[in-house]
Design a protein around this nucleic acid. Structure first.
Length: 642
RNA sequence: GGCGGUGUAGCUCAGCUGGUUAGAGCACACGGCUCAUACCCGUGGCGUCGCUGGUUCGAGUCCAGCCACCGCUACCA
């Protein structure tokens, strides 16, 4: 995409996910929010009417529970969390225009309105839900999605739910959504996520349950025409994007027309499906345009592992910002996470980047240039009079152009790389021209070129950092709040009086700063022995499994399934067990009756192809295919395997 | 099982539609400079470009098979 094309836009609406404040936010949330902030600041510099929204997703069971555990009302609990979050964003210099809470009155109105419209239209209907539900995650799951009978997201237990419920028609819009994705190649980014979403949709969409009965969950927005129900939290949450833009508010019709559709929803890859399938379908049902882009960025991992409380690797962004400074944290996050892929966080890498990129390259550049201007020209930016074009001028132009292209494509780490090409070039230029050996107009030219490069660097860094670019400007004797246009060469006026200052980014002593962190790193470093131990189970775990011998009584193919057989197995109980087994490709139903088997008797029941399975028969792969595990000599049906 | 991705210097990664001696940053070593935050600049890699075959005058770059890891998905119960 060309830069010029984007110049035509005059508004820019960007969102982060709204975060779930049942706990403090971590560095992962911080990354998304910082990245969005960089883009918001950049677009403001481009003169676009920018609207940046972040906020909190405040409904659902987990909030209700967390509040109860703290012994306060959900309202009190949330107010406190929100205050903490706003404090964090303020500390990091996040320049959001609206902090939306799903408990805001305008939001509740929008959600109800959306729900009602879709109901009236027939896209939401009342039916009966039966299936698994993970309370902590507020997610409905098909049996087949469960992992070992537990929630595939959080690994915790799920409960069987049977209740009347409202459903959103998803299948109705599947084809339209696929067409939209096909016709708008940039809609889902990066490419790999788009592929995943497409194959997910092509796999068939089931209608989505969008309500919970109030006897199961109270903390949410009520279904407007049926007070016995609360609206599903995800349905509630995604609506924030239009609430914030002014949807359905007569006083804000102009805002909505102006800002919607959003330019980009910046999200983590784990919530792609809500933003690329459910939300677009809701919008299509509402007959509203879809957001121009959903950008699912990678995760920040800690030593290669996903950030999670259970791993105990949560890094508190406030502690980091306090220790290293907000600009360093912002720089590091944006620099370290490449397009699409995950980035790994280590404190050592953070310190390294601070020292190398910020202190040695950038900060020191400012320091040496201001020092030379002070020393050789009494602190006044000289006038160029030699008439020879500067080598730095073309590099600065290239750097700015590349940075702009990258920013327009939301490729923040690429933009940083482009900017640093000018930092390096300026450092090299000093070495090559050796100002300490020059005088007269040659020296004037070199010093001007360097000061001007620094000015352009400050402009380009303006979106990325909060304090340092302003300090650079100050030391160069210039004012604040530049526009992006000022990246062009020559704006620095000769005669400007510079003001040397303290080092922009003081060097850190890794040994001092990392004392604790280094130990942590070396321990979390791959230790094969340790990993094996983790995979070992103790006897108790084994005992938890109820393995029993049995004999197959009946076996039949399951209609429509290639691999599944429905067995009834005698394991010495009053009633035979009905078990589904994926062995149809290796065993014929007629061979099985009388066949001995080993059954996992206490496996949570599951439903496959609509057939309930009350256990599982054990088999193992051999050269010829699957083999059922059988006792070598006859044993009693139902005898325990140990 | 299906689909997709990744595998390139010690580390993190670039290498588009195949073409002269395979690149960058960091780390490391040596040299230089002295304006600067013990900084900066230069020089230094005998890297099986995951493995094996193939196409081609020529392949990280195309094709086939295989291996490892990751993501999504599924009729693994």
């Amino acid at each position: 995409m060309s830069v010029g094309e984007h110049r035509d836009r005059d508004t820019f609406y960007i969102t982060t996910p709204i975060y779930y404040p049942d706990n403090r936010l971590h560095i992962g949330h911080t990354y998304t929010t910082v990245a969005a902030d960089v883009l918001a600041r950049y677009n403001r510099m481009q003169g676009r009417d920018t609207y940046y929204v972040t906020g909190t997703d405040e409904h659902g069971q987990k909030i209700q529970t967390a509040a109860r555990e703290s012994g306060v009302s959900p309202g009190e609990f949330l107010d406190e969390m929100v205050e903490w979050i706003k404090g964090l964003w303020s500390e990091l210099g996040i320049s959001y225009d609206r902090f939306i809470r799903t408990t805001d009155p305008d939001h509740a109105r929008v959600v109800k309105k959306v729900f009602s419209s879709l109901y009236e239209k027939g896209d939401i209907y009342l039916s009966k839900y039966y299936g698994w539900y993970c309370t902590p995650c507020e997610s409905f799951w098909l049996e087949s999605k469960l992992v070992e009978g537990n929630c595939p997201d959080c690994g915790r237990g799920v409960s069987w739910v049977e209740e009347d419920a409202y459903f959103l028609k998803m299948g109705k819009y599947a084809q339209r959504l696929l067409d939209h994705i096909r016709d708008n190649p940039d809609f889902i980014q990066p490419e790999i996520r788009k592929n995943e979403m497409v194959s997910f949709i092509k796999g068939g969409l089931e209608d989505l349950c969008v309500s919970r009965k109030k006897d199961a969950l109270q903390w949410g927005i009520s279904v407007p025409f049926n007070e016995d129900y609360v609206i599903y939290v995800w349905f509630d949450a995604v609506c924030n994007y239009i609430t914030a833009a002014g949807y359905g508010d007569p006083d804000r019709a102009e805002d909505f027309r102006r800002y919607w559709p959003a330019d980009v929803h910046l999200i983590g890859k784990e919530i792609l499906r809500f933003h690329c399938v459910i939300w677009p379908i809701m919008l299509m049902a509402l007959e509203l345009p879809l957001p121009k882009r959903v950008f699912g960025h990678g995760w920040l991992t800690i030593g290669g592992e996903k950030i999670s409380k259970s791993r105990g690797n949560v890094v508190d962004p406030l502690v980091l910002a306090d220790k290293y400074g907000r600009d360093a944290i912002r720089y590091y996050l944006v620099r370290e996470i490449p397009f699409g892929a995950d980035g790994r966080y280590t404190e050592a890498a953070l310190v390294d980047r601070i020292n190398v990129d910020l202190a040695n390259d950038l900060g020191n550049l400012l320091s040496r240039v201001t020092a030379m201007i002070a020393k050789y020209r009494d602190g006044v930016v000289p006038r160029r009079t030699d008439g020879i074009p500067s080598r730095l001028e073309s590099i600065a132009a290239e750097s700015a152009r590349s940075a702009e292209v990258a920013l327009e494509a939301y490729l923040l780490s690429d933009a940083i790389s482009a900017i640093w090409r000018l930092v390096s070039a300026a450092n090299k230029y000093i070495e090559e021209s050796a100002p300490w050996n020059l005088k007269g107009e040659q020296l004037d030219a070199v010093l001007y070129d360097l000061a001007e490069s620094l000015r352009i660097l400050a402009v380009m860094l303006w979106p990325f950092m909060v304090d340092a670019p302003a300090e650079m400007m100050r030391q160069l004797g210039l004012g604040d709040a530049p526009s992006w246009e000022e990246v062009s060469w020559g704006a620095l006026q000769p005669g400007t009086v510079i003001a040397r200052g303290a080092p922009l980014f003081p060097r850190l002593d890794p040994e001092e700063v990392l004392e604790v962190a280094v130990e942590e790193d070396s321990e979390s470093e791959m230790n094969p022995k340790l990993e094996e131990e983790v995979d070992m189970i103790d006897f108790e775990h084994f005992s938890a499994m109820d393995l029993r011998t049995g004999n197959v009584l009946t076996a039949e193919k399951i209609e429509g399934a290639d691999k599944l057989l429905k067995l009834t197995v005698d394991i010495g109980e009053a009633e035979p067990r009905q078990v589904v087994a994926g062995i149809a490709e290796h065993y014929s139903p007629e061979d099985l009756p009388g066949h001995p088997v080993v059954v996992v008797a206490n496996l949570k029941p599951a439903r496959l192809f609509g057939v309930e399975s009350q256990g599982m028969v054990l088999s193992a792969e051999g050269p010829e295919g699957l083999n059922l595990i059988v006792p070598v000599a006859e044993v009693t049906a139902g005898s325990k395997v140990k």
